[in-house]
Amino acid sequence: MAEPAKQLEPVQHQDETLPPWKEAWRNFKKNKIAIVGLSIVTFFIIVAIFAPWIAPEGINDQKLSERLQAPSSEYWFGTDDFGRDIFSRVVHGARISLWVGFLAVVGSAVVGSTLGIIAGYYGRWVDTIISRLFDIMLAFPSILLAIAVVSILGPSLRNALIAIAIINVPNFGRLIRSKVLSVKEEEYIMAARAIGMSDFRILFSHVLPNSMTPIIVQGSLAIATAIIEAAALGFLGLGAQAPQPEWGAMLSASRSFLIQAPWTMFFPGLAIMLVVLGFNLMGDGLRDALDPKMKT
């Protein structure tokens, strides 16, 4: 009986021999909307990287004779009340917004995941303390909490970033905690313990990689919210400060001449909308690609 087993043929075809991430990319490519999202995001990243070469003028070049000019072939997005080129400022603003969004999300993902993994894997009173902490933070509306944090730290772009990172920690923490709770009961975790693996090694080699998918998805969606939150703080004057070309701060500055010069508000707003849309579409696509079970 043991002999015929040796001729067992592989069940699937050769081209199925793909590592999980390649399979995810194949799923992602099929999703047109997700590709649109990825293109928008890539476009903004390129703009941000090459901002100094793309922008025709410096961000603080003032031409008082050319104040509040409507969009034209010379000033594509028009000029603001100091005669600064809005196109150049929006292009540079991409740097700030993406950077803030990215850093804040990485920070909250790292802190949140660490806390979430510890809470989920060790359970008991550790879990109780961490989970209650998350509950307390989630009890406040997030933007209110961010405002509170910034008012303690003082208004600046860096502090706005820290505040956004802090308010997003419980989202990541709870997400990964629940994932870890289910992953740690899997039999391969028991199997890893049976072969003599240490807890620490199990956490990093088995629990973490199998709990990563929701973090990647949540991360890409959270960048969108983080950008909005940064813009909101900038608008309230708690984030980026006056000469910095942050989109939210530019919106705030445009309030006084909304009627005479709507372009001062339109283009920074459009930029925020587009970049948020891009991250959202990409995040949804990632979710479908990484977790095909959820779709059907």
């Binding site: 999980p20 899997e186 039999e187 391969y188 028991m190 199997a191 072969i195 199998n210």
Partner: peptide, 15 residues
């Protein structure tokens, strides 16, 4: 001392 598990679908890390 080693162990063989019941569910061959769950006892191997899918990644």
């Amino acid at each position: 001392m080693q162990m063989v598990f019941q569910d061959p679908f769950a006892s191997l890390n899918p990644r």
